[in-house]
């Protein structure tokens, strides 16, 4: 569970870094009145690029999470009695 939590937090961190900091980054863009190119960047990032990025992060997380679960199952020796024991402890 601890490893799962660490993994979840790591993934969430990626999300925060990727999307959460964007508003701050946008404030640093040049004034659109001066250079209209900045606006196009915002449209491209928010309108298109964000979604594939979300799917990729999600996919990455699922693969890692299942690896962690596989390890846990191995450690339990594949013995369901062990697991039930753990559940009742």
């Amino acid at each position: 569970m601890r490893r799962q939590l660490a993994l979840s937090l790591k993934t969430f961190g990626m999300l925060v870094v990727l999307l959460g900091l964007l508003p701050l980054a946008f404030t640093a863009l040049p004034d659109p009145a001066v250079r209209p190119g900045g606006t196009l960047v915002v449209w491209a990032v928010l309108g298109v690029a964000a979604y594939p990025a979300l799917v990729v992060i999600g996919r990455w997380y699922v693969v890692r999470a299942e690896r962690v679960e596989g390890d846990t199952a191995d450690r339990a020796g594949g013995d369901t009695a062990d697991r039930a024991e753990g559940g009742r402890r």
Binding site: S8, T11, F12, L15, L19, A50, Y51, L54, I57, G58, Y61, V62
Partner: peptide
């Protein structure tokens, strides 16, 4: 959309 990523992760 990102709400689903948070939902997935946690």
């Amino acid at each position: 959309a990102a709400g689903y990523l948070v939902l997935l992760v946690f």
